[in-house]
Computed example of a mutant assay.
Amino acid sequence: MYHLVVTTMFILSSLFGCQQPKNYTTLPTNEFESLIKEESVQRLDVRTPLEFSEGHIAKSININVLDGSFQAIADSLLQKDVPVALYCRSGHRSKKAASILAKQGFQVYELAEGFNGWQQLVNR
């Protein structure tokens, strides 16, 4: 029994020890709102163009993270020396986009609850 417990703990620690550290910051809606009040922060919506057309945070540009050329488009449209505040619908795709951009050298802030959470904040 002791060996089973030790082996299980070793396996679990190995699995969690291999995780890549995230190199971007995830913010709750209220902190994200404070961040984007700064005019110089770049606002990026990583949803599809259709989703973007149905509503988005003011002054956001749209680059679909699911587009195969996301990285190249982002690199050509965004300034690396200016923070990027990005979001998707619920916070899943934005994590992928945040990771890609952070690896490219951008300072990235990701909206934890996505546009859904944003709408709840502004509709209060």
Rank of each mutant, 00 (worst) to 15 (best):
E54S: 01
Q120D: 08
T8W: 04
E51C: 07
G105P: 13
E110G: 07
Q20W: 05
V108S: 06
T7A: 12
V122Q: 07
Y109R: 09
E51R: 07
D45F: 13
R47G: 03
I73M: 09
L111H: 02
L50R: 11
E51I: 08
Q119C: 06
N123G: 15
M9W: 08
G68F: 07
E31P: 01
K103T: 05
S76P: 14
R47P: 09
V108H: 03
V108G: 08
S99P: 06
V84A: 05
Q42P: 04
H92L: 12
S14L: 15
E31R: 07
A112V: 03
M9P: 09
A72K: 11
T25H: 05
R43I: 15
T29C: 11
M1Q: 05
H3K: 11
A85D: 02
N23Y: 09
F70I: 10
P83N: 01
G117D: 00
P28D: 13
I57L: 00
A112E: 15
L15F: 05
S99A: 10
A112I: 06
L50Q: 14
P21S: 03
K95G: 09
S34V: 11
S60H: 08
I36R: 01
K96V: 15
D81W: 00
W118L: 09
N30V: 14
I100M: 06
G91I: 00
C88D: 07
T25R: 10
C88E: 02
Q20I: 05
P49F: 01
E33A: 12
S34H: 12
N23E: 10
S94Y: 00
E110Y: 05
N23Q: 13
N64R: 02
S69P: 03
E33C: 04
A58S: 14
V84R: 06
Y2G: 14
Q79I: 09
